[in-house]
Deep mutational scan, measured.
Amino acid sequence: QSYDVTDELPLPPGWEMTFTATGQRYFLNHIEKITTWQDPRKAMNQP
């Protein structure tokens, strides 16, 4: 797995990073009650 500086940034409020039983990373948004494979920190860093 390649290193990404985004991995060091804190998640936005309400978000949690977790893993499936097979080790795949995904993200939970407790405020909007959604899950996604997309890292919400990457969207924050788009110009």
Rank of each mutant, 00 (worst) to 15 (best):
F19A: 12
D4V: 10
L9Y: 13
M44A: 14
N45S: 11
W15L: 01
E32W: 15
S2K: 11
L9P: 14
I34W: 12
P47S: 10
G23M: 01
A43Y: 09
T20M: 06
N45F: 10
Q46R: 09
I34P: 01
Y26W: 03
Y26F: 07
H30I: 05
P12Y: 03
Q24F: 03
E8H: 08
N45M: 13
Q38M: 13
G14C: 04
K42R: 10
Q1H: 02
T22G: 12
E16L: 06
N29D: 05
A21Y: 06
D39I: 04
D7I: 08
K33E: 05
T6G: 09
D7F: 06
S2L: 11
T22N: 11
H30Q: 11
I31Y: 09
P12F: 00
T20L: 04
F19N: 13
K42A: 10
W15K: 01
H30Y: 06
T35L: 02
Q38L: 13
T20V: 03
E16H: 02
K42T: 11
L28Q: 07
N45E: 10
E32N: 08
P12D: 03
I31G: 07
I31P: 06
P12E: 03
W37A: 05
Q1W: 10
W37P: 04
L11A: 02
D39K: 02
V5Q: 09
T22M: 07
Q24H: 03
N29L: 00
L28D: 00
D39M: 01
Y26C: 03
A21Q: 07
W15C: 03
F19L: 10
Q24T: 08
N45C: 11
G14K: 04
K42S: 08
G23S: 03
A43L: 14
F27K: 01
M44V: 12
K42G: 09
Q38S: 10
Q46C: 13
R25D: 00
P13A: 13
Q38T: 10
G14N: 12
Q38Y: 11
L9V: 15
E32Y: 15
V5R: 10
A43T: 15
T18H: 07
L9R: 15
T6Q: 09
P12K: 01
D39W: 02
I34R: 07
Q38R: 14
P12H: 01
D7C: 08
P10I: 08
S2G: 13
Q38N: 10
K33H: 08
Q1Y: 09
K42M: 08
T36G: 02
T36I: 01
Q38H: 10
T22R: 09
W15I: 01
T35S: 12
E16M: 05
D4W: 05
N45Q: 07
T6A: 08
L11C: 05
M17G: 05
Y26T: 05
E8L: 07
W37G: 04
Y26D: 02
N29W: 00
K42E: 12
P12V: 00
R41G: 03
T18Q: 15
P13F: 11
L11F: 11
Q38E: 10
D39H: 08
T22I: 06
P12C: 02
L11V: 05
A21C: 09
P40G: 00
W37Q: 06
N29A: 00
Q46K: 09
R25T: 06
V5W: 03
L28W: 05
E16F: 06
P47C: 00
I34V: 10
R41I: 03
N29P: 00
T18M: 12
I34A: 06
A21S: 14
N45W: 13
S2Y: 07
D4Q: 05
G23H: 04
L28K: 15
G14A: 06
P40V: 02
E16Y: 01
T35Q: 03
T22Q: 09
E8C: 09
M44F: 15
Q24A: 10
W37C: 04
T36L: 00
P40D: 00
L28C: 09
E8T: 14
I34S: 09
S2I: 13
D7Q: 08
T18I: 09
N29V: 00
E16R: 05
E32R: 14
M44E: 15
R41W: 02
A21M: 11
L11M: 12
K42H: 12
L28T: 10
W37T: 05
T22L: 08
M17Y: 07
E16W: 05
M17S: 10
M44P: 12
T18S: 15
G23K: 05
M44T: 13
F27T: 01
K33W: 01
I34L: 11
R25C: 09
V5I: 15
Q24C: 06
V5N: 13
L28S: 08
P13M: 08
T20C: 06
M17C: 13
M17D: 05
P13H: 14
M44D: 15
F19T: 10
N29M: 00
T6F: 11
L11K: 02
P13R: 11
K33F: 03
Y3C: 15
Y3H: 14
T20I: 01
L9E: 13
T36P: 03
P40T: 01
Q38W: 10
Q38V: 10
F19P: 03
P10F: 06
T20K: 01
W15Y: 06
W15V: 02
R25M: 07
T35Y: 05
N29G: 02
R25V: 11
F19Y: 11
L9W: 11
G14E: 08
Q46T: 12
M44W: 09
A21T: 13
W37K: 06
P12N: 03
T35F: 03
F19D: 06
R41C: 02
N29T: 01
P40L: 00
E32H: 12
W15Q: 04
N29Q: 01
T36S: 07
A43V: 13
Y26A: 05
T6H: 06
H30D: 07
E32C: 12
T22H: 08
H30N: 11
T18N: 09
Q24E: 15
F27M: 01
M17T: 10
N29C: 00
I34E: 07
T35V: 05
D4N: 15
T36R: 01
G14V: 02
P13Y: 10
F19C: 07
T35A: 06
P10E: 12
R25S: 08
N45D: 11
V5E: 11
K42D: 07
D39C: 03
F27D: 01
G23P: 01
Q24M: 04
Q24P: 01
L9I: 14
D7T: 12
R25W: 03
Q1K: 15
E32Q: 15
P13K: 11
E8V: 10
E32I: 12
F27R: 02
Y3L: 06
